[in-house]
Amino acid sequence: MILFKNCAVLPELMDGFSEAKCDILTDGKRIKGIYKCGECPFDSETVIDEEGRFVLPGFIDMHVHLTLSGNDTRIDNEKSGVQRGYDALKYAQDALNAGFTVLRDVGATHNIAINLRNSINKEDFVGPTIYACGLILTPTEIGNDFLPGLYSEVDTPDEIIKAVRQEVAKGADYIKVMGSGSAQNPGGEPGKPIITLEDLKVMVEAAAFKDTYVAAHCHGATAIHNAILAGVHTIEHASYLTDESIELLKGNTDSYVIPTLLIVWKLTADVAESSAYMGEKAREMLNAVKTGIRKAYDAGLTLGFGTDTGIDPVHHGQNSEEFVLRRDFWGMKEIDILKQATINSAKIMGIDKDYGTLAVGKFADFVVLDRDPLKDIAAAHDGVVSVVKWGKVVR
């Protein structure tokens, strides 16, 4: 057992504990007890004094690509599957060192994210808990060949059902679909839908039959609206979110929005010359992103936390820049941003029994910060002192 004593905590991110400071006892992978300082009744082999530093639940990033580096995508495309596998392990560990103890990979080549998930779960490697979709399902569309090995093209209901079953059989935790054009794909138009409402319904039904859900890449307003009507569980990006769609999402426990500000922001300012077209698309989206997501926040929607890390030019380990951007760009409150990266994302992913808050019985995943993130949210970015994953100090 390990006792982490003198921990400053945020009661909003705790379950069943309302004090501002505590001692946390871990036993193996899970939290055995949370006590007022000095009142733990058990002897511990190891005692770590946090000396009043802030201890928060491990962060969750619901939108990463572990087989993309954040550099020129064409160079990534030339790598072998073996090299991309080695890289994915490093990228996952980079995120873990930044405090992200859970990642949701939203599309990887060579079944790498799924295999890496399995190896980490077996404790062959130290890394974050990974949830993965495998290949991204998409209709035949312009620009798909820009990301070879990432897509499974489906154009009929039968093809959709078969592809869903194939990805689940390969170990996918959920299904990812392209609902609108992509900023990354040459020729892709983010504002336009590329899959019909009827086909989305088929996919959602096929996924539900296999006890899982669909996540949809959706920039455009029509794509977002159709995803909600079809029962898509997570709407990724939601760049052109309308008032009508926000109304449909109020009180909706089937569909949730996962904003990804970091990639849009970075693309407007810092992109390789070969990806200049991506920057142009991002600049066109930026005002809509600012207005729509702020309205969703004001409406009280449960928002998840995503970054699109791995897409040029967002590097793994930079995920935490999203914290500061959400405050500065959208004017969100610090505690709400922290909830998005913990409680909200765990709830949306259906893993809140194990993750999302500090509570007895949950996994001992937490991040230690050098200062109060409610006073300065940048502490979640540049103030990480240590990271605990499954009860072990990994940074």
Score class of each variant (00 low, 15 high):
residue 8 A to L: 02
residue 11 P to F: 07
residue 13 L to Q: 02
residue 14 M to A: 08
residue 17 F to C: 12
residue 19 E to Y: 12
residue 19 E to Q: 13
residue 20 A to M: 13
residue 24 I to T: 01
residue 24 I to Y: 01
residue 27 D to E: 09
residue 28 G to T: 10
residue 32 K to Q: 12
residue 41 P to V: 06
residue 56 L to P: 05
residue 58 G to C: 02
residue 78 E to N: 11
residue 79 K to G: 12
residue 83 Q to F: 15
residue 90 K to Y: 15
residue 93 Q to G: 15
residue 94 D to H: 12
residue 96 L to F: 06
residue 97 N to I: 06
residue 102 V to P: 00
residue 104 R to Y: 03
residue 105 D to I: 12
residue 111 N to E: 10
residue 113 A to Q: 14
residue 118 N to A: 15
residue 122 K to W: 14
residue 124 D to P: 15
residue 127 G to S: 14
residue 129 T to R: 11
residue 130 I to N: 09
residue 133 C to G: 02
residue 134 G to R: 02
residue 135 L to C: 10
residue 137 L to T: 03
residue 141 E to P: 07
residue 143 G to M: 10
residue 151 Y to F: 10
residue 152 S to D: 05
residue 156 T to Y: 03
residue 163 A to K: 03
residue 167 E to P: 04
residue 168 V to S: 07
residue 171 G to S: 07
residue 182 S to A: 13
residue 192 K to W: 04
residue 193 P to D: 11
residue 197 L to P: 07
residue 200 L to C: 05
residue 209 F to H: 15
residue 213 Y to F: 15
residue 219 H to K: 09
residue 220 G to S: 09
residue 222 T to W: 07
residue 225 H to K: 13
residue 235 I to Y: 05
residue 236 E to T: 03
residue 240 Y to F: 09
residue 241 L to Q: 02
residue 244 E to L: 00
residue 249 L to D: 01
residue 253 T to N: 15
residue 254 D to N: 13
residue 257 V to F: 05
residue 259 P to T: 01
residue 263 I to N: 06
residue 265 W to R: 10
residue 271 V to C: 10
residue 272 A to M: 09
residue 286 L to C: 09
residue 289 V to Q: 02
residue 293 I to A: 04
residue 294 R to S: 05
residue 295 K to A: 00
residue 303 L to Y: 00
residue 304 G to N: 07
residue 305 F to S: 00
residue 309 T to C: 14
residue 318 Q to S: 14
residue 319 N to M: 03
residue 321 E to V: 00
residue 322 E to Q: 13
residue 325 L to S: 00
residue 328 D to I: 15
residue 330 W to S: 08
residue 335 I to F: 13
residue 337 I to Q: 09
residue 341 A to N: 04
residue 343 I to N: 05
residue 344 N to T: 09
residue 345 S to W: 08
residue 375 K to I: 15
residue 375 K to P: 05
residue 379 A to P: 13
residue 381 H to R: 15
residue 384 V to A: 10
residue 385 V to I: 08
residue 386 S to N: 13
residue 388 V to P: 11
residue 392 K to W: 06
residue 393 V to P: 08
